[in-house]
């Protein structure tokens, strides 16, 4: 069930260059059922900026009715969001979309989680849920530079974690796929969120593995009504197109035409 709720800010802090961690509380959290879903935020009651901002959910605490987002404040909307203080409210529409299927990994199996930049956050809740059911995880997290790295400690506490930076200022230099080529990890299923070229490279690197990819696109309504965020499909589905907001953002590998 999708709700609209004015949710209260519990915590907000900057955790890397331009990267903020924001925790909100409210009833809507109780309907967050799957890692990889997102919320659509209205950051002001005025017309400027006008549209909502889709932001992925990084972690969920049903008991405290809190959820946390990690986002990059690089536009008008996210900059306003980054200035929200404790006790202020944010207009939230959500939870939206279909997330990562945790049930696709069996207890005792190993899952490879690959994130790129602001695609890393939803993998955190996913990893927590996989571990809760006894799935091992290997985290490969790519960032632009050491200044942008976040949640290395949180992921490391859960399981094996590798950091990759484009400029080599931390961890392995290059792209996540460079590290994967060298390490050649053994795993049963992969989950990924990040830039489309990265998702495409993963599909090609592991043609025989079961995998789930989270996509992003500029959105209007966020609920499937406006047809702004459609993507082309492959012969693997009988659907002629898919909407990233409401059919996704997570799709099984091979379904979206890359």
């Amino acid at each position: 069930m999708i709700h609209q709720e004015r949710m209260k800010v519990v915590r907000q802090q900057q955790i890397a260059e331009d990267i903020f961690e924001l925790t909100l509380t409210g009833q809507l959290v109780l309907d967050m059922k799957q890692p990889g879903q997102f919320v659509h935020l209205r950051v002001t009651d005025t017309y400027e900026p006008l549209l909502r901002r889709p932001i992925s959910i990084a972690s969920i605490d049903h008991e405290l009715k809190e959820f946390t987002m990690i986002y990059r404040a690089d536009g008008r909307g996210t900059k306003i969001l980054s200035e929200k203080h404790l006790g202020e409210v944010v207009d939230v529409l959500g939870p939206l979309g279909h997330g990562f299927p945790v049930e696709e990994a069996e207890p005792g199996q190993t899952a490879l989680l690959v994130g790129g930049g602001i695609g890393v956050p939803p993998l955190y809740q996913l990893s927590k849920e996989l571990h809760a059911k006894g799935v091992r995880t290997i985290h490969v997290l790519g960032f632009q530079s050491a200044n942008n790295v976040f949640y290395e400690k949180q992921f490391s506490e859960l399981d094996e974690t590798y950091i990759v930076t484009a400029d080599g200022s931390q961890g392995t230099k290059g792209f996540v796929t460079d590290l994967l080529k060298g390490k050649a990890p053994t795993f049963d299923v992969f989950y990924s969120c990040g830039p489309t070229p990265m998702l495409s490279a993963l599909e090609q690197a592991y043609p025989d593995k079961k995998g789930f990819l989270s996509f992003e696109e500029r959105m209007g309504c966020g609920i499937g009504a406006c047809f702004a965020c459609v993507c082309n499909t492959t012969a693997a589905t009988d659907k002629e197109y898919l909407k990233i907001c409401s059919d996704g953002p997570v799709f099984p590998r091979g379904v979206v035409k890359l």
């Binding site: 900026p49 549209l51 696109e217 500029r218 959105m219 209007g220 047809f227 702004a228 459609v230 993507c231």
Partner: peptide, 13 residues
């Protein structure tokens, strides 16, 4: 795509 872009107090589609 992209099919939408936000503008001042509006949007393009």
């Amino acid at each position: 795509t992209p099919r939408v872009a936000e503008t001042a107090a509006g949007m393009l589609n």
